[in-house]
Design a protein around this nucleic acid. Structure first.
Lengths: 137, 137
DNA sequence: TTATCTGCAAACATTTTGCAGCGAG
DNA sequence: CTCGCTGCAAAATGTTTGCAGATAA
């Protein structure tokens, strides 16, 4: 009879490196950017391992994930582990965490009015942050 | 001196076929699904042409685009040409158009409070539609 | 006639996966 | 000693693009 349930998680040098790169970093970044950051920090970690670690962290709710316009996945470790949204800078990825029960309630209500169940909502706000506005103008 | 501005749009059999497949179809579908639908309707159209047509239609605001969980782009022709959101069925793609000035105002306000400009928001609601809930249960 | 469109195949970019060896527990 | 993890390279996926010929206007 096969093993069920979540396998043990091991504490490896590579996973510590990925988590380290995410900690206290305010911008959403792609897996490739994070990989580059880890490497330039002196740690040798394979790209596939970075992808696998990020997936694990995302599944565990340790990091937030969103897609940019081009469809690339971006990752960031947020202070708030609960449900929240982001205001993300289109140009540098910097993000601010935002809470709003109102939006969630609106989504659920509207969906249920149309006969939908198991309602989930996805809200992201994009803009140009103050710093990037200064550089660009 | 080179030509500037939008090139002429030609009315071809292929584009009519793609637009036809989108007209009065309530679900969001991938380019590949739409391609299959066009073909099974008896029209010979290349996949690349379908992609190009959809891009053109999307740029013109004639069709709405969103990404599903897997990152695939889905297309649908909506009645409302203005800004609106969708409640989309996770399982069949059927979508209901929803208007909400409140959500837009909330997004803009919150973003500006944090110093962001050129604010844009992205809101989609996912759920299981009544029909699919019946089939699955 | 001529600029745009089409089809095909090749190119792309991101992400996933198979596998053999490594290493945490 | 085991079973999960890693690195690499190969595969998979969805989408885009170059080019030569077809075709609206």
């Amino acid at each position: 009879m096969g093993r069920v349930g979540t396998p043990q998680r091991r504490d490896t040098r590579q996973r510590r490196a990925v988590l380290g790169a995410l900690t206290n970093y305010e911008a959403f970044r792609s897996a490739q950017d994070i990989h580059a950051a880890v490497r330039s920090g002196g740690e040798a970690v394979g790209l596939a391992t970075v992808y696998r670690s990020l997936q694990l962290l995302a599944d565990a709710g340790e990091v937030d994930v969103l897609r940019d316009d081009s469809g690339e996945l971006l990752y960031r470790r947020c202070a708030d582990r609960g449900h929240h949204h982001h205001v993300v800078c289109r140009s540098c990825g910097t993000a601010v965490e935002v809470k709003s029960d109102a939006v969630g309630r609106w989504a659920t209500t509207v969906a249920e009015e149309h006969g939908f169940t198991e309602v989930e909502h996805w809200v992201e706000v994009f803009g140009t942050c103050a710093k990037c506005a200064r550089h660009t103008s």
